[in-house]
């Protein structure tokens, strides 16, 4: 059984890995491989964000009574990340290498900053406040939320 910080942090690393593979493929102009990796990343990201927004954040907000605090900032950043993902989709469809790589660098640093905040602050706080955290993670493992 894994805890919230453990499981969600591992998911961040998985997303990073497949994101880097897509980026490397674009740099080599290997468009079919880039598309496969990119789609894989996009679906991993969608699932991860949904697990946070639909399950973990509401549970945390309920347990702590904080609805305008850190989870709200995280939701707004998710929205910005989705916008960048959309732009990356377009750049990939147009096979615009330089545009894609510039956007990829941008999304990468945004995700890293975002992840750092979640991993250093939010997940440990969740582990502290959500008594059924381990069961929630087991639920994620068993079924796809998104």
């Amino acid at each position: 059984m894994s805890s919230i910080p453990e499981y969600m942090t591992a998911k961040h690393r998985e997303c990073d890995e497949v994101f880097c593979q897509a980026e490397a493929a674009v740099a080599e102009r290997n468009w079919p491989l880039a598309l496969t990796n990119w789609q894989c990343f996009a679906s991993e990201l969608t699932e991860h964000l949904a697990q946070e927004e639909e399950v973990l954040f509401p549970q945390f907000e309920q347990a702590t009574g904080m609805t305008t605090g850190p989870t709200q900032v995280m939701r707004m950043e998710h929205q910005q990340m989705r916008a960048l993902v959309q732009e990356l989709d377009n750049a990939l469809a147009a096979k615009a290498k330089d545009e894609y790589l510039g956007l990829a660098e941008t999304l990468m640093v945004m995700m890293q900053q975002h992840n750092m905040k979640e991993e250093m602050m939010l997940y440990p706080m969740m582990a502290q406040h959500l008594s059924d955290g381990d069961q929630l993670i087991e639920g994620f493992k068993g079924s796809k939320v998104a």
Binding site: G102, L103, V109
Partner: peptide, 13 residues
């Protein structure tokens, strides 16, 4: 973060 529509003005890295 608040004015999401302004994101369109930000250039990439």
């Amino acid at each position: 973060l608040i004015d999401f529509s302004a994101m369109q003005f930000i250039p990439h890295m």
